[in-house]
């Protein structure tokens, strides 16, 4: 691989790292692993991408690829972890409520707290499928990442949305 190509690969992966590391980190947290480890694995994910590209492999959708690698790293980390925190224990700290309109903000905070509860009650796969959908991935890509069929992705999403629908506002 010539020097110019290597320099361009550096820039390409660095840019993706800059754009997507927080998304990958957040996704890894859904495996119930320690934040420090989730951060290490996020970095590891991008390093692996770089190595694979340096080997000359072609990757059609890099975003889907890094989520897939992160998913596998997350599964392994969770399996080797002695004490796994229950998945879905985040969303528990209410965010500060702005003070301009206390009445409205109180309602907003209550609605958010209900929404958070609905999110906590999603099963891990439902939550992961929804999260990957929010990340802009297609059903086929989600299926490849989570290791399920496309129709199962659709079904998980339906179940998840039906739980969320109870607290949705127009």
């Amino acid at each position: 691989m010539d020097e110019a190509r290597i320099v361009s690969l550096h820039a390409q992966v660095e840019q993706l790292y800059e754009d997507a590391r927080q998304d990958i980190y957040y996704y890894l947290l859904t495996f119930g692993i320690d934040p420090g480890q989730a951060q290490d694995l996020s970095q590891e994910t991008f390093l692996r991408l770089y190595m694979v590209l340096r080997e000359g492999q072609q990757i059609r959708n890099e975003r889907a690829w890094i989520f897939r690698v992160a998913h596998n790293l997350g599964l392994n980390a969770r399996a080797s972890q002695k004490k796994v925190r229950p998945i879905g224990t985040d969303f528990e700290v209410p965010l500060p409520v702005a003070a301009e309109n206390p009445e409205r903000n109180l309602l907003e905070a209550e609605r958010r707290s209900l929404l958070d509860r609905a999110i906590r009650e999603l099963s891990p796969q439902q939550r992961q499928c929804l999260l990957l959908r929010v990340e802009g991935l297609r059903y086929q890509e989600i299926a490849g990442i989570v290791g399920i069929s496309i129709s199962t992705v659709a079904e998980f999403l339906r179940r998840a949305v039906s739980k969320l629908k109870r607290v949705a506002h127009e």
Binding site: Y26, P35, I119, V134, L164
Partner: peptide, 21 residues
């Protein structure tokens, strides 16, 4: 509406959880 609520909440939460280092 449910999907938008979820997306909004996730993006908000994502900004909140910064990594330890």
């Amino acid at each position: 509406a449910s999907l938008e609520d979820f997306t909004w909440r996730i993006e908000e939460d994502k900004r909140r959880v910064s990594p330890p280092r």
